[in-house]
Design a binder for these strands. Structure first.
Lengths: 197, 197
DNA sequence: GTCTATATGAAGATAGAC
DNA sequence: GTCTATCTTCATATAGAC
């Protein structure tokens, strides 16, 4: 791991981000030092500043990249026409995307308050755009008579909280497979929004 | 605020905990210094050590007290006999208790990783005991035929995540009152566990 | 019970050599 | 592109005076 001189590997940048991701998720942004990140990468602390202007930018990059990927993944799908199908697609994608990226998700939720005000606004806008997609699906389903939802805004928050919570307990190779978990959550979401069986 | 000498107010202890609560919730445990807490209280940093052996104990006290109060509040209620009533009681109490204590809840979820291993185990056991209460209610409802729940363990986690998520957006004096929010969430929980309307 | 002062260590970030 | 060395600031925690 530890190198002594000029690694020139050409992939130090990604390794810096990977180390920051893992360490921030494990110990928290404020508790992790640049020296710790450097040790994990195998360089001295000063060398990190070839790849990031400062620690804050490292955090922001991780969160922004995560949200961009989430929205890009959503955008790459064809939009189902029926509200029920759209909700199922949203539910399954959310579960799959989030369970595959536990560190990114953890950071995206836990470290918001450690973003500078400008960075916070930018990340928050992306999150809001994502929530709006679910809210639009719910409103369409109410409109069409498919869903029984008293307050689409609250249901949006409730469904996202419920789905994201999967990361607190789900582990690959545990009692249930991801596709079993997907099915169980989809059943709960379906019932929660009052889709007739 | 700032005192110069011997406050002798007799309530410095609670004020230290209150300051720690507010600052930890706002900036995170690792990002808050003892000096900041002292400034908020109006004493010098050294004086804090009359009230806590160290920073870690301050965090642990806040989390343990919070969980103890949650369990004590549950224990103080009469247990409804029907699973449906028990679930409604659980839901409403959870929402009320959590929405009244946003700082405590935030810390209880965000700062687990900053607890020492022993302290973590103790807090985790309390949380587990709370979750087990909901799981028992769900199992009873499945048994009695009142609920349609594929996997009580997952539903436990899903319901708790959904309910606790209320703290990310609910503010006293906002668009909806707490009792309206309670009703909407109870409707969603009811539907999610398949209670017939 | 609180103060001031301090021991000791570590943080983020930069400078200049190679 | 990375190293070593360093600037400057701040951290937790303790000691001893009042």
């Amino acid at each position: 791991m530890a190198r002594t001189q000029g690694s020139h590997s050409g992939i130090t940048g990604p390794r810096v981000r990977a180390a920051a991701l893992s360490l921030f998720a494990q110990h928290g942004y404020a508790a992790v030092s640049m020296r710790q990140i450097a040790r994990e990468v195998g360089v001295q602390a000063g060398a990190l500043y070839n790849y990031t202007p400062d620690k804050q930018s490292l955090l922001f990059d991780l969160m922004k990249t995560h949200m961009d990927e989430l929205l890009a993944t959503r955008a790459s799908l064809e939009t189902p026409t029926s509200p029920v199908a759209a909700l199922e697609t949203f539910t399954r994608l959310h579960l799959r995307f989030h369970s595959e990226r536990p560190d990114e998700v953890f950071i995206a939720y836990m470290e918001l308050r450690n973003l500078s005000p400008d960075n916070f606004s930018e990340v928050e806008a992306l999150r809001r755009a994502y929530e709006d997609q679910l809210e639009a699906i719910l409103r369409a389903g109410v409109e069409s008579g498919d869903f029984t939802v008293a307050d689409p805004k609250i249901t949006t928050m409730a469904v996202i909280a419920m789905l994201t919570g999967v990361n607190t307990w789900f582990r690959e190779g545990g009692r249930l497979s991801l596709s079993e978990v997907e099915q169980i959550y989809w059943d709960m979401v379906r019932q929660a929004v009052g889709i007739a069986a």
